[in-house]
Design a protein around this nucleic acid. Structure first.
Length: 488
RNA sequence: GCCGCGUUCGUCUAGGGGUUUAGGACGCCGCCCUUUCACGGCGGUAACACGGGUUCAAAUCCCGUACGCGGUACCA
């Protein structure tokens, strides 16, 4: 088995592209096959220089290692279509010679005029096909000498696929079963553009054949052009690979998860955005895997290795799937919890020192220990500012609600108990507080809430005693006294 | 318009003729835990698009309709 992921470097890698790459990767690994990365850079007008590096970075980030591709030569390179021109030229020549393709000289304007002429209410976009090609300037309507003269004089021209009418083009799709198209509904696809570069359709099938691709796994948007590809394989006398068209990822409101559509709803569309937003790569991978595929049992959490084990094309769904950011967060929370506090602390330490000033790595580890259960993203730790600096202000609502006239005095009384507390541990501090409220003859809440407020400035947070242990005696006493002074 | 693909809780889905009072997960709601918030535990909410057929029996098979999505480029 040989599969490939073949993105175009026209922009940053789309999240849907990553899913396509993932499914290809999983299938290859599952069957001990080869996973190839091929850069389809045949559109010069949309070429984005940084795009290729982004594709490489994002695949690496997600842990999808390819076997062959740019900077990883294998048995069928090069892996950029821009470096494989001779292959496409040869295929185009073969097709023209065998009468399966022809040369056309029409300019964009001439084609537009033809479309205008044939346009009706019922046919808003006339094709270049059986009906119309006879009235255009191409090697089917011009004499051989005239064609030769025009080509010889350097007149711009394209190569078009000659689609024969009345044929039923059929193929078996792994996820959709048998799909049939009538050749009458297929247009004479341009194979070689007037700049001499092949279109996707030609380059793609030439490369898939040359690279020995056995399974093509791609998005459903390619389904309508598959009959063209099948026709090309037939015309070249090649065996077509097996096809699998994946359900499209839709926006939560339906419709394509396009840049505009998605960003309006706060959904990142490029993999880079997920990386930058602090998503765990495993969470993204796991989430993406479940978007259109399921293992057939009730498991939800899968490592990449487990996905390889469980994956199969048979269990890929057929209906479009809506993207759900909340489910992704749930995955993220799960994978974050799976990481050690030391690991997360190591990642976040630089940002914490940058934001709050110098602090030891050990203290960050302790802070993560305190917060981990209530974090969804690694950077959530930054929101718990009180762990790294003294509260600048106290949550107004809580003060209004919980801070009573005697709270300051109670806090001061408590500091006297804490000064002499023997065991500065969670248990020791709990009994210290218990004895304090017994002595003062008050309810637990009357003391607990002011203490929490004094320590964190917040109405909620980690366990009170654990927090005191984290701060230590001196800092705890300082914050208690400070609050008693600053609050009314 | 035409061509193609699709349609089970709000979302991702299981189920593919009888085992289904349609199962799980996310979300939402409630209770418990915790005198905080989260985590966790327990419970609840909520779906077979519609209409015909086939059959003793249909979410499951067939046909139609509706709706959604994709394609309809010298883009991929």
């Amino acid at each position: 088995m040989r599969v490939r992921f073949a993105p175009s470097p026209t922009g940053f890698l789309h999240i849907g592209g990553l899913r396509t790459a993932l499914y290809n990767y999983l299938l290859a690994r599952k069957h001990g096959g080869v996973f190839i990365l091929r850069i389809e850079d045949t559109d010069r007008s949309r070429f984005v220089p940084e795009a290729e590096q982004d594709i490489l970075d994002c695949l690496a980030w997600a842990g999808l290692e390819f076997d062959q591709g740019p900077e990883k030569e294998g048995d069928c390179g090069p892996y950029h279509q821009s470096k494989r021109s001779t292959l496409y030229e040869a295929a185009a020549d073969t097709l023209v010679e065998s009468g399966n393709a022809y040369i056309a000289f029409d300019t964009a304007e001439e084609i537009e005029v033809m479309r205008e002429r044939h346009r009706t209410q019922d046919n808003p976009s006339p094709r270049y096909d059986l009906i119309t090609r006879s009235e255009m300037s191409n090697s089917l309507t011009l004499s051989a000498q005239e064609v030769e003269r025009r080509v010889g004089s350097g007149e711009p021209h394209v190569v078009r696929l000659l689609v024969q009418p009345g044929k039923s083009v059929q193929f078996d799709d792994f996820v959709r079963g048998t799909v049939t198209f009538e050749s009458d509904t297929v247009d004479d696809q341009i194979l070689v553009k007037s700049d001499g570069l092949p279109t996707y359709h030609l380059a793609n099938i030439v490369d898939d054949h040359e690279m020995g691709i056995t399974h093509v796994i791609r998005g459903e948007e390619w389904l309508p052009s598959t009959p063209k590809h099948i026709l090309l394989y037939e015309a070249l006398g090649w065996t077509a690979p097996r096809m699998a068209h994946l359900p499209l990822i839709l926006s939560p409101t339906g419709g394509k998860l396009s840049k505009r559509n998605a960003e309006k709803q706060g959904i990142p569309v490029t993999v880079r955005q997920y990386r930058d937003a602090g998503y765990e790569p495993q969470a993204v991978v796991n989430f993406l895997a479940m978007l259109g595929w399921n293992p057939g049992d009730e498991r939800e959490l899968f490592s990449l290795e487990e996905l390889v084990e469980a994956f199969s094309l048979e269990r890929v769904g057929q209906a479009g799937v809506q993207f759900d950011l909340q489910k992704l967060s749930w995955y993220n929370q799960n994978y974050l919890r799976g990481r050690s506090s030391a690991d997360i602390a190591g990642q976040m330490h630089p940002r914490i020192t940058e934001q709050f000033g110098e602090c030891s790595l050990e203290s960050v580890v302790a802070a993560i220990d305190l917060m981990k259960e209530r974090m969804v993203y690694a950077h959530d730790i930054l929101e718990a500012a009180f762990l790294f600096e003294r509260p600048l202000a106290y949550d107004e609502k809580s003060v209004k609600k919980k801070w009573k006239e005697d709270s300051g005095d109670l806090l001061k009384s408590f500091t006297r108990v804490l000064e002499s507390t023997q065991h500065w541990t969670s248990d020791g501090l709990e009994s210290a507080l218990q004895s304090a409220i017994a002595e003062l003859d008050i309810g637990v809440g009357q003391l607990m809430f002011p203490v929490r407020l004094a320590l964190s400035g917040q109405p909620s947070g980690p366990g009170l005693y654990d927090m005191m242990v984290y701060f230590g005696r001196a800092e705890t006493l300082f914050r208690l006294n400070d609050a008693a002074q600053r609050l009314p």
